[in-house]
């Protein structure tokens, strides 16, 4: 597969390491009330869709950016690639 890196352009997927569902960005607050249940969901409950999926890929043999890749798991069509850091910030994560 070819992943169109937002900075570097098309890169072979062989250069990347796959992590999984981009919802792993949404880590709950470990000090908040109800953290047990939140972390149970976070660690174990994820969708595994046959179709469009937002996934985390790490450009390990490239610029070390984590990317959020929107990919169809059936056709492998990739419709969007974003820097995960931007996605995280957009979803309200900070420090």
């Amino acid at each position: 597969m070819i992943i169109n890196h937002p900075l570097l352009g098309p890169c072979d997927a062989q250069e990347f390491t796959y992590k999984g569902d981009a919802r792993l960005i949404d880590r709950p607050d470990g000090m908040a009330d109800g953290a047990d249940a939140a972390f149970y969901n976070y660690a174990y409950l994820r969708d595994n869709p046959a179709g469009q999926h937002r996934e985390l890929w790490f450009h390990e043999q490239g610029d070390r950016s984590w990317l959020v890749v929107t990919r169809n798991t059936v056709t492998h069509e990739i419709t969007q690639v974003e820097l995960a850091r931007d996605v995280a910030r957009k979803s309200g994560r900070s420090a």
């Binding site: 960005i25 880590r27 985390l56 984590w66 850091r85 996605v87 995280a88 910030r89 994560r93 420090a95």
Partner: peptide
């Protein structure tokens, strides 16, 4: 991952 995705 922690640096870029969890605590950007």
């Amino acid at each position: 991952f922690a640096r870029q995705c969890l605590w950007p």
